[in-house]
Amino acid sequence: MAAALLTGCHVLVAVVLAASAVGKARPAGFRAFLTTLADMGLGTPRMRRPLAYATITAEGVAAGLLLLPGTRAGVIGLLLASLVLAALTLGVVRAVRGGGPPVTCACFGRTGRPLGVLHLVRNTALLLAAVGALVVTGSGPVRATGGELVVSVAAGAVLAVVVIGLDDIADLFTAPTAAGTRSADLP
């Protein structure tokens, strides 16, 4: 059971960080991420571009290393992912508690909702998954095999898709529907 959970956490965090890095690395995503960093007041204008590159690189490297669970590289990936996720979570806390104008999320290279509690919960859950996997890894070698491996990889990938689309999922429950708008317009 621990092996399946560990593998699922590796896949979850790897896919989310890979999607984040790829989204931010595209030209429009990179510009949006630079705007997010500026709106958060992080770094000087000269330092934002290197900070953005460092973030994208760290996310990508961690994602790659996480695909090697049960190895030293996998452990390094968990450590790097934990550090990246801790920094991103602190950034969300800063944006939410900053008291300034809302900061739009460019988490996956696109803008959408302003950073808020949903993003804080998402990042905290991902951080807990990475740290939890690190703790399990520290207790000794564990490796999922056979059917356990297939199920844990699939579960991690499905959870990652949900996490990546969380803003869109939340919009389904908070945005006014077209039918609701039309019925309100009727006399």
Rank of each mutant, 00 (worst) to 15 (best):
A18R: 05
G77L: 09
C9Q: 07
V61N: 07
L51V: 10
T71C: 04
A154M: 14
G74T: 05
G140Q: 06
L66S: 06
M40K: 09
G112V: 01
T104E: 15
A179Q: 14
V150W: 12
L78Q: 09
M47Q: 09
G98R: 06
T35N: 10
V96R: 08
G116M: 01
T177F: 13
P27K: 03
L166K: 13
L6I: 11
M1L: 13
A63Y: 01
G41T: 02
P50S: 05
A4I: 12
C107H: 03
L118Q: 06
I76Q: 10
R94M: 11
A54Q: 08
P187Q: 14
V92F: 00
A52L: 01
L149G: 07
G77Y: 08
G29P: 03
A63V: 02
P114I: 09
S20Y: 06
V151I: 07
T181I: 15
V93T: 12
L127H: 06
T44Y: 07
G147I: 12
D168I: 13
I169Q: 11
P45C: 05
T55E: 00
A178E: 15
A130V: 05
D168F: 13
S183L: 15
A184V: 13
L127M: 02
G112R: 00
G74R: 05
R94P: 07
S139V: 13
R46K: 10
T57K: 04
R182Q: 15
V92A: 06
G132I: 00
R48Y: 04
F108L: 10
L134S: 04
D185G: 15
L66P: 01
M47W: 10
R122V: 04
G77V: 09
V11Y: 01
L149W: 11
P187M: 13
T89D: 12
L80F: 03
I56Y: 07
C107R: 04
T124W: 04
G165F: 14
G138F: 00
V15P: 05
L172A: 14
L127D: 02
G64C: 04
G100C: 05
N123Q: 01
M47T: 09
L68W: 07
A175T: 15
L120I: 00
V158R: 09
L79Y: 13
G180I: 13
A19K: 06
G165P: 14
G29K: 03
L127V: 00
A175Y: 14
T137S: 10
M1F: 14
A58V: 04
A106E: 03
A144S: 11
R26K: 13
G91W: 00
R143P: 08
I56M: 07
G146S: 07
D171Q: 12
R143A: 14
G147M: 12
R143D: 11
D185H: 14
D167T: 11
V11Q: 00
T137L: 02
G147F: 12
F108V: 09
